[in-house]
Simulated scan of single mutants.
Amino acid sequence: MSNFDTDGFEGVSCPLVTPYADGDVDETALAELVRRVDDAGMDGLVPAGTTGEFASLSDEEYETVLETTVDAADGSPVLAGTADTTVSGTLARIETAADAGADAALIVLPYFHGANDPAGNERFLSEIADDASLPIFLYNIPSCTGQEIAPATVESLARHPKVHGLKDSSGDFNYFLEVADRTPDDFRLLQGFDSYVVPGMLMGSSGGINALSNAIPETFVAARDAVATGDVERAREIGAERIAPLFQQCVDHGFAPATKAALESRGWLETAAVRPPLVELDSAAKDEIASSVQRALRAP
């Protein structure tokens, strides 16, 4: 592993999109995006997650995305998405991530088929953690997996020496607060719902992993800094007036398509192309997103 400090993984991290050019992964565009968000002051990088369209990548492309990210990150922490539907498949992805130089792995519940009892989910996640070659962060995203990681399961797994935190993309803030109440102070809670990142940090969470930080990293860094300095009014303004309206467009149109449209509006991607079953946004939606991006970036 590199200099990734799981006990200090806080702040705002970027779940990178996967750029495409003529249907292939655009390694040059990905590396440039990594440098942009890193230069903006983001605290970490998360390749091959939901916004990165991991499920649309071949094994070879997945490896390329991780290697390109680690190389371009130049020492910044990399938390690799390693989702799969089996214990063995997830462990194989963790090995790929470790070989690429990633610092930790983000794991999800099996998608398509769910557990018939919460104990099954705990067994799945704990068996991965037992044999994982990297530190583990849980990823709660019930809209994609069909089930949440129950708070009691998170509480139990938080005692595992290799499990260091949770990214919650449920959009259920009460769930987030319950998990916070059930887990130790050094268990890292990261908000995946962009419009909740400021409320989460104000309530004591560790930070966030947020799709729109691809396109407006400066805004997320400003929110992080406002919370850190106790400027609650500024933090609330950033969250409510700059992040939330643009995030609603992500909810309406899908995270990868909307985020790529936002990146295209900044000139940070040449194309907002996505892979099936996702569809690139039409010009009207892109115009609305471009306007929201400009509002998010306006001077204080």
Rank of each mutant, 00 (worst) to 15 (best):
F220K: 09
P151S: 02
F176L: 10
V34N: 00
E63H: 08
P142N: 07
T69V: 13
V163N: 09
A72K: 08
D24K: 13
V37N: 01
R236L: 14
F193Q: 13
D131N: 11
L16E: 02
E233C: 14
A150K: 15
A256Y: 08
D225M: 11
I128H: 08
P47G: 08
L106Q: 08
A228D: 14
E67W: 10
G200C: 12
T153L: 07
S88M: 15
E241L: 13
R35Y: 01
S195I: 10
R36E: 01
D181L: 12
D84E: 08
G267H: 00
A235I: 08
P151N: 01
F137A: 02
L79S: 04
V154S: 10
L138C: 10
L177A: 15
L177M: 15
E61C: 02
A150C: 13
D7L: 14
V154W: 12
S195Q: 14
G267W: 00
R123M: 04
A158Q: 14
G192V: 08
D74G: 06
V154R: 09
D225W: 11
G200I: 09
A285G: 00
A132Y: 07
E61P: 02
H160L: 02
A235F: 08
G49T: 03
D231P: 01
F255L: 07
D38H: 08
S265H: 00
D117I: 15
A296D: 00
D26P: 06
E32A: 10
E148K: 13
K286Y: 00
A97D: 02
S58G: 12
Y62W: 09
P184M: 05
R35L: 02
G75M: 11
T82V: 07
S292M: 04
M203G: 14
G200R: 09
D74S: 09
R123S: 03
A222N: 12
R275L: 03
S292L: 04
V25D: 06
R123K: 05
P19E: 07
R36P: 01
E233Y: 15
Y139A: 04
W268A: 03
D282C: 05
L125I: 10
G230W: 11
E60D: 11
G81D: 01
F112I: 05
L278I: 01
E95W: 02
P110Q: 05
N174W: 15
